[in-house]
Design a protein around this nucleic acid. Structure first.
Length: 780
DNA sequence: CGTGCTCACCTTTTT
DNA sequence: GGTGAGCACG
């Protein structure tokens, strides 16, 4: 890890063209298409590179850097290169190293927005009232701190949750608003207009704790740059070239930060794709990329439009979808990979059928067949809109023994047990860390309850000292019950012991010991819940990973900014992930399930952000389809269980927006007939739904049955309308069981809640109430 | 102070 | 449906 407090330039010389040639062949520009080459060679003034999906963006970025270095326009340490994720930064560093060799180590300002901003802030922390060793709070710490502020201000934390305020503050920071700069109408609706005051108090609390949150890293940078011209000038001299990846995802604060840093040299190169802006909900402003030419007059704009990833059908389907959006900069992607399979769109009966269908196809693709090469599991991906959709696939895959991995999900460093371990270490390292103290003072349970903690907090606040100091005082008095006092003084004694051991013991070994002696691992071992085992393993993994760092300090610094652990080599498994997580990835075969109104596009997104939200959802669809190299398969269902309730689904409007010529559609629900016209029947009634074929016998279903699968077949659940009565395949109530789906002419669809003799109790979707039904008629 | 029960909630996610 | 948070009770 490079040290942040030294501005010493790298001793490594800049690479020469001859070095590049040696590493990368006779000419590192070779093989670039004309547009890519233009993007690489435009080294004077502002440049906007509009890089469509799969057009070789990363190659252009890295080659451009190499070119700047090779032509002697700048030294590695004079380049500011920012990405959004650690993964992207890591990848870029690796690829540049492959071109220019060890000189890449001199690229000390290559990193995420936050890590670069943190380096700047460590250097100038005192200008915003912090010390250079400030801690970076994560969301959990943040919310607990906010909760304290709310309590101190007597705000009803039930009506106005810490989460809500944390979200608001985050939003404000994303827009570059400090408490002073906050527009008057902001935060009015929170806690009767106390929003701004609470924001200010939160910031003050953090200053006292010598801490800042993620948003502050950039916000404090802005404050420094705007109030200290000589500091800004120092960075102007330093950064001769600025390169930004995924520019469409920048928020206002990041935009301002870039403008401030780039205004002197004007050598700002932003790379992005307005059609792949999918982070509006966390403050990204597509507008930043849309108005680049106005912000940087005379900018060179290069469009990368040749796609090297997908077949023409896939590309055309994605282009057709995205063309429904307004206000695009516009690109026309093309490819030489003509033909291939059309995008397959299918409607199926319910979520179970959908997962069965996809699992079947995965098995078929894995096996290969006539004229089809077998695929590896890892070459197939399921991209969902929301994580609740994942479970159906996981269950199915477990059943059929299909290996899969869920990408994303709760991050390793955000797991409670890891954060607990970190809290112990933080407290050992800095006794003033009140948040860490609170977190673990009674974890594992050691008889120091909430009342005691509140008391300690109060005393600490009153005397303006850290909670730890207050605790030390209190155990000397008889203010606490004898039992509590003993528990607390034992805890303090343990901490002191660990602290003195920390000086000699390796931090990995120390962690192990702390976890043992605190009783943490014992508590987990006694825990009978199934997650306890995983937690113990996570802790083991933690201890192991700590070995990679020289000091505890270095380790803690790493985890606060690089909340990202290198996963080992990927096993051969089907990848399940959200559309968001899929950005930047590609797969030969991509499944896109759940294209239903309300699921995708997400109802909430449309409710909250209207047309803007819908357009972002559409971009998400575009991202999804363009992940596919060879085959893309979209599906939607007629019935879906959402939060334990059955809901009737309509196909997504996006299905209708796909160009007919590139799509092959079929439906088992009668909703989306495919064939000529392919008219979607929004608003039609279920009466027109043809009975689901009773002869359904997919290979996967039969296999599942032979493996003892107990679930009900959707064909059995199919019901048709009758005259004021419940009509079904079977006339006997005993043929139904709890959970079966039924239809009633008068009450609509419902779910069987109970069977009693010849009576069914049914909960109907619409009425929202239960009814007992006792009349049955034979089907047909 | 710890446990068991009811109730509200339920996108997308990085740093 | 499943879970975590908050509250009542022992």
């Amino acid at each position: 890890m490079s040290s942040y407090d030294s501005f010493e330039d790298s001793p490594l010389p800049a690479p020469r063209i001859s070095d590049l040639a040696r590493v990368h062949g006779p000419d590192y520009l070779e093989g670039l298409n004309p547009e890519q080459r233009a993007a690489v060679e435009a080294t004077e003034g502002p440049v906007l590179v509009l890089a469509g999906a799969g057009t070789g963006k990363t190659r252009v970025l890295t080659t451009r850097l190499a070119h700047i270095l090779a032509t002697g326009k700048a030294k590695p340490w004079e380049l500011l290169v920012v990405t959004f994720t650690n993964k992207a930064a890591r990848e870029m560093r690796e690829r540049i190293t492959a071109i220019i060799g060890p000189q890449a180590e001199g690229l000390r300002w290559l990193g995420t927005f936050h890590s670069v901003a943190a380096q700047v802030l460590r250097r100038h922390a005192e200008l915003v009232g912090l010390k250079s060793n400030f801690t970076i709070l994560d969301t959990d710490d943040q919310e607990r701190l906010i909760k304290q502020v709310l309590e101190a201000e007597n705000v009803d934390a039930k009506r106005w949750t810490p989460k809500t305020l944390a979200g608001l503050i985050d939003h404000w920071k994303n827009r570059g608003w400090t408490p002073d700069r906050l527009p008057a109408n902001e935060g009015k609706e929170f806690a009767n207009g106390k929003g701004q005051a609470l924001y200010r108090l939160y910031q003050e609390r953090m200053r006292v704790l010598n801490a800042c949150d993620f948003g502050d890293l950039l916000l404090h940078n802005l404050t420094i740059f705007m109030s200290q011209p000589e500091v800004l000038a120092e960075f102007h001299r330093r950064f001769r070239y600025i390169l930004v990846d995924e520019y469409q995802d920048t928020n206002v604060a990041q935009y301002l930060w870039l403008r401030l840093l780039g205004q002197a040299s004007q050598n700002v190169c932003c790379v992005g794709d307005d059609d792949q802006s999918i982070y509006g909900w966390r403050g990204a402003e597509v507008d930043n990329i849309l108005r680049f030419e106005r912000d940087f007059p005379g900018a060179t704009v290069v469009r990368l439009e040749r796609n090297y990833r997908s077949t023409s059908h896939i590309l055309a389907a994605a282009s057709g979808l995205i063309s429904a959006n307004k206000g695009r900069l516009g690109k026309t992607l093309w490819t030489e990979q003509n033909g291939g399979e059309k995008v397959i769109v299918r409607g199926v009966w319910d979520g179970e059928a959908e997962s069965r269908l996809i699992a079947d196809e995965i098995e078929r693709a894995k096996k290969g067949g006539a004229e089809k090469e077998p695929r590896k599991y890892r070459d197939m991906a399921i991209l969902v809109r929301a994580s609740f959709q994942m479970r159906a696939f996981e269950e199915r895959f477990v059943l059929l023994s299909i290996p899969y991995t869920v990408v994303g999900g709760p991050r390793f460093f955000e797991r409670a047990e890891i954060r607990d371990a970190h809290a112990y270490l933080r407290l050992i390292q800095s006794p003033d860390d009140d948040l860490a103290f609170e977190r673990i003072v009674n974890t594992p349970k050691r008889g120091i309850g909430d009342t005691t903690v509140q008391k300690l907090l109060q005393i600490a606040r009153l005397n303006g000292v850290p909670v730890m100091t207050a605790a030390r005082e209190v155990v000397l008095t008889d203010e606490l019950a004898a039992r509590t006092r003993t528990a607390l003084s034992n805890f303090l004694r343990d901490l002191d012991r660990w602290r003195s051991q920390a000086e000699t013991l390796h931090h990995a070994r120390l962690t192990e010991q702390v976890l043992e002696e605190s009783g943490y691992t014992d508590a987990l071992r006694l825990d009978k819940t199934p997650t306890a085992q995983t937690r113990l393993e996570n802790l083991k993994e933690l201890v192991q990973s700590m070995g990679n760092f020289d000091t505890l300090q270095a380790y803690l610094e790493h985890v606060s900014l690089v909340m990202d652990m290198d996963r080992g080599p990927q096993a051969d498994a089907v990848q399940i992930m959200t559309l968001h997580a899929a950005k930047g990835l590609e797969f030969p075969l991509v499944f896109l399930p759940g294209w239903e109104e309300g699921v995708f596009p997400s109802q909430r997104s449309m409710d909250e952000s209207g047309e803007k939200g819908l357009e972002e959802e559409r971009r998400l669809g575009y991202v999804g389809i363009t992940r596919a190299r060879e085959e893309a398969r979209i599906s939607f269902v007629a019935n879906r269980m959402v939060y334990g309730r059955w809901t009737s689904q309509l196909p997504s409007r996006f299905v209708d927006e796909l160009p007919l010529a590139n799509v092959e559609a079929s439906s088992e629900t009668g909703y989306y007939g495919g064939g000529p016209g392919m008219q979607q029947q929004h608003g039609s009634t279920w009466d027109s739904t043809p009975a689901f074929g009773s002869g359904y016998s997919s290979p996967g279903w039969q296999r599942a049955q032979s493996r003892g699968y107990q679930g009900s077949h959707p064909g059995r659940q199919q019901v048709i309308e009758g005259e004021g009565r419940l009509v079904a395949e079977s006339s006997a109530a005993s043929d139904y069981k709890r959970g079966d789906r039924v239809f009633h002419q008068k009450f609509g669809y419902g779910q069987v809640k109970g069977v009693d003799g010849n009576k069914l109790t049914v909960a109907f979707d619409k009425a929202g109430e239960k009814k007992v039904i006792d009349s049955f008629v034979e089907k047909g």
